[in-house]
Write a protein that binds this DNA or RNA. Structure first.
Ligand SMILES: NC(=O)c1ccc[n+]([C@@H]2O[C@H](COP(=O)([O-])OP(=O)(O)OC[C@H]3O[C@@H](n4cnc5c(N)ncnc54)[C@H](O)[C@@H]3O)[C@@H](O)[C@H]2O)c1
Ligand SMILES: NC(=O)c1ccc[n+]([C@@H]2O[C@H](COP(=O)([O-])OP(=O)(O)OC[C@H]3O[C@@H](n4cnc5c(N)ncnc54)[C@H](O)[C@@H]3O)[C@@H](O)[C@H]2O)c1
Lengths: 207, 207
DNA sequence: TCAATATTGTTAAGTTTTTCACATAAATTT
DNA sequence: AAATTTATGTGAAAAACTTAACAATATTGA
């Protein structure tokens, strides 16, 4: 019933609705959403229907109500604790990023093998690698962000897998497959850029 | 004929084939590719067919030949010049990242509004914002990475659009729509993480 | 040389995702 | 109060994407 892109779409609805809310709107129609997100209004209604979000015929949907429901769906009642493995350039950027907090996500620690990176008093702290397993178990961490060098990516996945973690957001260029126990989602920034370059060049060729 | 995820799939084929190449393999079968990437072998053959990559019945495909063809498709004959707008935490990580180079992508400059960020002698240099338009025109830049604060994202897109740039890889949380002239691809890291959290929590619920 | 085998290339079938279309119901107008 | 308008909710249709199936054909081995 719920399909692959649906949660990402739900997050887009959420962003838009929060924006409309700050502008003072109380109600919204599926058309308003579909126009700005460039999808069909029936897809919006179908998504809402699939998640049990209901409106009033003729009256549209109440923004507050949708937002509450979306948070329920996403499990935003409790703060999600996340750790970062590999506090290099991109790992550090993510650790210091304030944008996770307001979505109920807290980066509670980073881990690195390089002693010069370690800062146990930091907020969040950066701990040594050999503490990963204990930390994950003691703090019941289910999700981590992996930003280690490509060379150690496989090894790191194996290590994390053994801790019983549930999900990895992988920024290394190695593409990992999910298993029943461990979901691995891969973000390949180089590929995203190459894809964009392809699209733009193709467009140019057509002209 | 060519569909949305096809180029990203092609890039995955490329990664895998390069790996097989370093292991000494000369030939590959669609099955070898589909097994490791967890798709069907007919999809691999269909992708190849769509892009004019041919093999030999019974003999499989020649790795060198596929890789050459993929590079042709992606236009890897010339180096792609890219600029970064907003050299903060994530912009700087991207600017210093060495992984673009070996895919024929060169970050030739960064731009920032903050004088303390500027370093005209850097490699690549970080220039002041007010040089964006001239630089893009003089250097025939078609692609940029946008890593400015959310607040100035809209303004930056307008500014870039006016320069006639062809593509933006947008890391801000604002989702922009592409136009006929300007392709904007959005990477929303927070959404990726929220999506992963959803999937993992749902998995846990089922158990 | 000829049968057996293995793999591509491609058409058809299947699956997933999105949109269309409209009956249904709430609100507004006459 | 009836008619009209306007949106939802949803089943059917369409589109997009993936896989299955197999004929065509190259290679191997007897
Ligand atoms: N920087 C970027 O813009 C960018 C873009 C796309 C992909 N990536 C990928 O993200 C990953 C990190 O890139 P980066 O530029 O931040 O690299 P980096 O070298 O700056 O950071 C890597 C960090 O991982 C640490 N590390 C090494 N081995 C470790 C281990 N076994 N356990 C834990 N930590 C370990 C290192 O000490 C270092 O601090 C790489 O795989 C890279 O390919 C980076
Ligand atoms: N850091 C992360 O991990 C992360 C993750 C997801 C999304 N993002 C998004 O990426 C963007 C950048 O994040 P960041 O953490 O690097 O922020 P940052 O504040 O470290 O960097 C932003 C940079 O942009 C510069 N800037 C401001 N106005 C500008 C303008 N008009 N033109 C050019 N440059 C300008 C600032 O001087 C600063 O150097 C934000 O939109 C953020 O939401 C960041």
């Amino acid at each position: 019933m719920t399909n692959k892109g649906q949660i990402l779409r739900l997050l887009n609805y959420k962003n838009l609705l929060k924006h409309l809310q700050t502008l003072g709107f109380k109600k919204v129609f599926s058309d308003n959403i579909s126009d700005t997100l460039e999808i069909s209004s029936s897809l919006v209604r179908k998504d809402f229907g699939n998640f049990g979000i209901t409106g009033n015929r003729k009256g549209g949907y109440e923004i507050d109500s949708i937002l509450g429901k979306i948070d329920d769906i996403l499990g935003k009642d409790e703060i999600q604790k996340v750790v970062v493995i590999g506090v290099g350039r991109i790992g550090e950027a993510l650790m210091k990023y304030q944008g996770f907090m307001k979505e109920g996500i807290q980066i509670v620690a980073g881990f690195d093998i390089d002693p010069s990176r370690i800062n146990t008093e930091g907020n969040p702290p950066v701990l040594h690698n050999d503490k990963i397993a204990d930390f994950i178990k003691e703090n019941d961490i289910k999700i981590c962000i992996m930003t280690v060098p490509q060379m150690v990516a496989k090894h790191t996945v194996d290590l994390l897998s053994a801790t019983g973690i549930g999900g990895i957001l992988n920024f290394t260029p190695i593409k990992f497959q999910s298993t029943a126990e461990l979901t691995i989602n891969n973000i390949n920034i180089v590929h995203e850029l190459e894809n964009l370059i392809y699209v733009v060049n193709k467009q140019k060729d057509k002209e």
